[in-house]
Design a protein around this nucleic acid. Structure first.
Lengths: 343, 343
DNA sequence: GTTAGCACTCCACCTACGCGAGTGCTAACA
DNA sequence: TGTTAGCACTCGCGTAGGTGGAGTGCTAAC
């Protein structure tokens, strides 16, 4: 069977209506709601077809219809025009004022949650290039030195290293030069054993320290991998009865609290280098099992120099896709602009 | 009316029973449950007295009794023996393996949540003494320098400072010496204007940089004040029907996600220098309004050098106080031991 | 191809009712 | 005087039955 123009209009009407009410919608409603001027009986026939084709389902006989995942998918794919929404609030937002990255991201998450009434998450940007830009050893104590590593993108990592031997200023200076000469501009993978042994040799009696320092550096950069995720508005799900029953709510809340699972969502997006756009997962399409009753919309934002993060909005399947997509576009754009202004 | 020995025993039995079942408990149950060998009628009389005295309440006429806040309070205060519980799981726990503080705290929160089936939170230790131990400026770029501040307790703060003038190595070295000579060992409050102007004078043409650096330091140390809080097991509240209704659950979840409010709990405890022990808030006693239907048990832990944090366990009023207190004692003890081992 | 009409289905909601748990009171007992 | 047995009463809860509304599918007519 083909999807006639009229069928599409009816499907659209059903989905719109369901998005608002959250209740199954019947033929009579559609007959009055649209400007098609068709009787409910005709609508019924069409709906029967649509159901057969899998775009809508009946929760039980003699109930109205609700969109299936497939129906939502069609809606999202074909009918979502690119609306340039005004988001006054967002535009005059606190973005500009915040300077600490983590605060900023928390703010964004909160803002989105309040604005959309859905649950939100945002992952801190990950550094794709982890090239060492600069290294610095300093003596903090007689037997402790501080190693500071700055990697491309001005991300800073600290590590305190215990040393058995006391190092004087001159030695420290030499080590600093040695390390910087050898390691600057390199990524972790590029540091190989022969370089390490070369450095050790040059360090002479302090070769132990060199080994410790390199270990510390490796750990610092590696630690970056488990990414930070900020969430907000998890309790918004209680606003949607279809998600608010105990079992589902508990699952979703848990996923939000133990952010571990959310990283899958992020990985999924970041893995795909090309996907800078917006992605919509409906129901079972989601990579996170506990969210199979939700829809998830994600957007990738970029802060230059290969730093990319993901923003996600999680809500019921009858999410206002239009608004969410618009909001996400604005936000990612703002983040981009913000970054440019700062550099 | 006086609280006879028998009344206390009956109250105890009621509470114990209610903790287990979560259902109002009736006279017949108590009559069978205890070794008092009293008929249900006698129990009824006593229960009537207890109700009059405010230790128990009836949810509705002809229902059994449940403990009031006052009843719980009596129970907690007088009847909670110090049990040395074995917590095998906790003892052979991951504590030892984790080295990053934030990972460790997240682990502890999760462990507690799984172990107790309540919601948990833990605040990162705050540094009471914010004395500067060590300062280091390094050039990252032509127009960016990195300021690293190490404060007492080996807490490290970074800040990247944009500079208009390029600084050569020698100048940087001089500035480093200048700053360290003047500021080491001082707390933020001790840095006054005359010191700053003295430094500026010595810095000569680079006085602007000095001003920027001091600003950055001030900000770094101050930023420490908004304390980090980790939570886990918020979804455990769904296990207790009396907390699982939508409104309450939503409130509690929200409080847990927007950690802001939890800080009140922490502040409340940390303010009181002497209170190293365990504190129990029952129902309305809590400083957080949204948790008035819960009980909150907090413990302060100490990591030496004035670093203290708070652990909190949030559950229904019919919380297993015995177990929770025991667990908290073990945990704080473990943290203490861990710290000693590491230093 | 569209529509009106009709019988049918199912759910949500209300009501009534009985059951069980629990209480308070009273009278009898030790 | 404290304790107990007995009884009437209350309340919440689960079940069963009934009703109305919303919606469907089908058929026949336009």
């Amino acid at each position: 069977m083909q999807l006639s123009e009229r069928k599409i209009k009816i499907l659209q009407a059903i989905i719109r209506n369901y998005l608002e009410s959250g209740e199954p919608v019947g033929s009579r409603t559609i007959s009055k709601y649209t400007d098609l001027n068709l009787s409910s009986a005709t609508i019924r026939n069409e709906m029967s077809d649509l159901e057969e084709m899998g775009y809508i389902v009946q929760p039980h006989t003699s109930a109205g219809r609700i969109p299936s995942d497939k129906g939502y998918r069609l809606y999202v794919d074909t009918m979502m025009e690119e609306k340039d929404r005004e988001l006054e609030e967002l535009k005059e937002m606190i973005l500009e004022k915040e300077d600490k990255m983590d605060h900023l991201l928390k703010q964004v998450a909160r803002l989105l949650a309040v604005n959309t009434n859905y649950a939100t998450m945002i992952s801190a940007p990950t550094i794709h290039s982890n090239k060492i830009k600069f290294l610095q050893l300093s003596r903090v104590d007689v037997n402790q030195i501080l190693a500071v590593v700055v990697v491309e993108g001005n991300v800073i990592k600290n590590n305190i290293i215990p040393v058995s031997e006391a190092l004087d200023d001159e030695t420290l200076l030499k080590l600093n030069i040695l390390l910087n000469t050898h390691l600057n501009g390199l990524a972790l993978e590029e540091i190989n054993l022969s370089m390490i042994s070369a450095m050790k040799q040059q360090a002479g009696i302090h070769s132990d320290v060199v080994a410790d320092v390199i270990d510390a550096i490796a750990e610092s950069i590696k630690a970056e991998e488990d990414l930070e995720i900020y969430t907000s508005g998890a309790n918004n799900i209680f606003k949607y009865p279809e998600l608010a029953d105990q079992q589902k709510a508990s699952d979703i809340i848990n996923t939000f609290e133990e952010k571990q699972m959310l990283t899958e969502l992020v990985q999924d997006r970041l893995a795909d280098e090309n996907s800078t756009g917006i992605q919509v997962y409906i129901g079972n399409e989601t990579p996170i099992q506990t969210m199979k009753d939700c829809s998830v919309v994600t957007a990738t934002y970029e802060l230059g120099e290969g730093m990319r993060g993901t923003i996600g909005i999680i809500g019921p399947k009858r999410m206002d896709y239009d608004k969410v997509v618009g909001t996400l576009k604005t936000i990612t754009h703002q983040l981009d602009e913000l970054y440019r202004k700062k550099t």
